[in-house]
Computed example of a mutant assay.
Amino acid sequence: MKSGFESLAQLATPDLADARLALLVVLLMLAAFIDVRTFRIPNWLTYGGAVIGLVLGTAIQWRLLGPAWAADGLLWSLGGLAAGLALMLPMYALRVMGAGDVKLMAMAGAFLGLGQIVPAVLCVFVAGGVLAVGYALWRRAFGRMTANVVDIVQSMAFAAMSGVRAGAPRPSVGNLPYGVSISAGTIAWVVLSQA
């Protein structure tokens, strides 16, 4: 009699890898929609999505290479999750983004794996920059946004050299749901990597 995981692994085919990416896109679009409406990304979405990404990564390796390789699939997904979390934590520490955004990128890492998360994060930062510039121009606050970016860079440099955290940041240009940038950048990377 097969266990539940063995049954899931038997269903896995190369098409499951495509289905995994399609599910990631759906989860990211849902997160962006919720973030725009509520300025929050719910834990059920990030934690649940991360678990699904870990299970699918393991099942795909199990099916493609056999049970002996299942642990590699799990480690591949865990590495992506950890890297997504680690790459976004500095932004959270600087109060540039919220905890939900960090968890969303970690969830995406569970689906993408360690080898794909770094370029996906770079695409996210590009998407975030474009969205922030567009938002600042729309609000006619580009100068204030530029001054805020300069302050952040100076604070980071000062903290790195002295170990002392800088003073209070300038007033924000406005709230921007960064889940949209995470979704747009990650989806862009998924599309580019499949081309």
Rank of each mutant, 00 (worst) to 15 (best):
V26Q: 00
A31F: 11
A31N: 14
A32N: 11
F33M: 14
I34C: 01
V36E: 04
V36S: 04
R37M: 12
R37T: 01
F39G: 02
F39V: 06
I41W: 00
N43E: 11
W44R: 14
L45T: 08
Y47A: 15
Y47H: 13
G49E: 06
G49K: 05
V51I: 15
L56I: 12
G57Y: 00
G57F: 06
A59D: 02
L64C: 01
G66Q: 09
P67Y: 03
W69S: 13
A70F: 04
A71S: 14
A71I: 15
D72N: 13
G73P: 10
L75H: 14
W76Y: 14
G79F: 01
G80K: 04
G80T: 04
L81H: 01
A82W: 13
A83I: 12
L89A: 09
M91K: 06
Y92P: 00
L94E: 14
R95H: 10
G98W: 02
V102W: 08
L104H: 07
A106P: 08
G109D: 00
A110V: 05
F111N: 03
L114I: 13
L114Q: 10
Q116L: 05
Q116M: 07
V118K: 01
P119S: 05
L122W: 08
C123Y: 08
C123N: 11
V124N: 03
F125C: 14
V126T: 09
G128F: 00
V130Q: 03
G134E: 12
W138C: 07
N148Q: 11
N148R: 14
D151A: 12
